[in-house]
Design a protein around this nucleic acid. Structure first.
Lengths: 193, 193, 193, 193
DNA sequence: AATGAATGAGCCTTCATTCAT
DNA sequence: AATGAATGAAGGCTCATTCAT
């Protein structure tokens, strides 16, 4: 008696996640080319062959990760628009961004990797840039409302700062205290009372 | 008639540089694992065997690049200490940093790569961190002299900003106008006249 | 309510035929090694596992095909002996042979394949040779009755001719008009009236 | 001191031939898909990797064989046109054809293989057909000169006969005496004296 | 009877490295 | 100093086969 369709779907869901998780970890750690399917299979606790039952190629695994990342990114973006007060909004945005980094370190590492080597997965970079552009526009609008002088440039600098902090955090977690950093950044834009 | 010792030394120097240059370009573009010795030999216009006459392994080539990078970095650092006036010094530092990025894009890409994947060449990250720490201390001291309130944190943020801008520049040159960015940053710290 | 035994037997019969048909088609088209169990299952519209419910191995499927082929061959052979008049018999034999080729192209392709690569299924070749020997003997006896001079050699040549025509037909159906060919061959042996 | 260019060319020539010879033997025996690069390397007495120094893919090896086959075929074709007397010419043609089969059994096996499975190397079949068409035209012209009644059909039958005999020879050398067969065929067309 | 998830050996191919010249 | 032929381990991927359901 074969498994029910639902059972199979569950199994597939679980195993797929297993593979994507393992791959994300390894790709982030050792890079795409530095990670072999063998590595992935071992890390995921499955056989090499099974990986190909779920993804037609190594590249497809990378793409699967990016798909997942997109979903997470969309969740993140929703956070941004919640409050109405511009300063609160900035607060929220920084909070969400730094949380994202903290909780999705590997995604960040990977997107950096792919951005630096577009030959592996060129569209990963595009996605990341699109996301960044949206973010930038939002920051700019916030800064404008806050009465900052040159909001376009200021937004760019703030964006760079956040990315720079994230980069430092990724390279050495212990060297950066994200909470304090956030506070310091916010202080710069706190409206006079 | 055999070559003189001096001629040989020159040849060796030149060929070594050829290999390192080619490797730097390729590693930066396609990553360490994504670049084969064959690729390097072709890019350098030499035979595969000759590469091994100069470097005992692929890893050694990477190390050679890092050595070179160190030298360039030291040159850069010298720039920092030239002027005495703290604002001029900040100006100089930013100028030098952005120039370095512009002219040594590949070095920067590579150090980022190695920092993200420490298993390839762990000490590359260490070097980069040491350099950064020095830089940070210097920035901090400058900002203090400029009367900035929380110089330690401010230095960290400024450092992150510079790295963030560099990152954006590397990923998409056209999206960043380094000159304008520098000016905008300096404006933030320009002493009141 | 479980199926009756009879129903089960029918199902088994049908599914087995399904597998053998699909395999024959694919083996003939892409060769034994070029066809995967997956291909077969898909072509037969069943699951991979089910194929193993009916045949213990890929090789066994090939053997099953050969068994079927034997049956068809025996049917064919019966045709040969029907008429009594030797010329009519020759006519019948050619008719049957060419019909067989036309209707069982894939069997012919496969037997050729296996004959050329005896390591896959050595006894396929034996079977085919046995069959051919019988046929040859029969042809020889017919030619003798028809008063042909060197019936042994002539039978061999006629056999080769039929196989050669069949080969050409298999490789390019459009290049051969089996009916005309048959007529031309018969003309050679038509008794003077 | 590197090898001279000539030395290298010689080595390459020799090793390439080694690989092609081994491949021809194995492909003919076990088929394209049934032969692994490992098999080829072992049969050729070289390492697996070296095979790829000479051919970019397994398919390319097959193509290399076909190229060689073409050369041999052209040599063969030259033989056909030597004598002027049509009967002698027929004699020559049969002699050359049967010799070719005897000495290039593997080529013949392979071309048959590829003709039966055009997905592997479709143009092998085309080549073989072109060659056959030329041959057929030539036979037809000869038969015409010999006063045969329906030279087009007769040529087709003769061609089929030769191919049939070749097929039988390939499948079981001992069952066919090519010399006697040739004589018997010639006898059919010997002009009355 | 039937399914398809899972395995592991083996396949084609690449690549760091060695070696004869 | 220089070449490129040669090697063998490892990489991505396929496939016959097994097994839980």
């Amino acid at each position: 008696m074969p498994r029910t369709e639902k059972q199979n779907a569950e199994i597939r869901e679980r195993t797929k996640a297993l593979i994507l998780d393992a791959s994300l970890r390894l790709f982030a750690q050792k890079g795409y080319h530095g990670t072999s399917i063998n590595d992935i299979a071992k890390e995921a606790g499955i056989s090499k062959g099974l990986a190909y039952n779920y993804f037609p190629s190594k590249q497809a695994i990378a793409e699967g990760i990016i798909q997942n990342m997109l979903k997470v990114g969309e969740e993140l973006a929703k956070e941004f628009y919640k409050p109405v007060d511009p300063f609160e909004r900035l607060d929220n945005m920084l909070e969400a961004s730094f949380n994202y980094i903290k909780e999705n370190e590997d995604y960040w590492k990977l997107i950096l990797n792919f951005s630096l080597q577009p030959d592996v997965l060129d569209y990963a970079m595009k996605i990341s840039k699109e996301f960044n552009d949206k973010l930038l526009a939002e920051i700019k609008s916030i800064l404008k409302k806050l009465g900052v002088k040159n909001p376009a440039m200021e937004a760019r600098l703030l964006g760079a700062m956040v990315d720079g902090v994230s980069l430092h955090y990724i390279i050495d977690k212990n060297s950066v205290d994200l909470k304090k950093v956030k506070k310091a950044i916010l202080d710069k834009y706190k409206p006079a009372e």
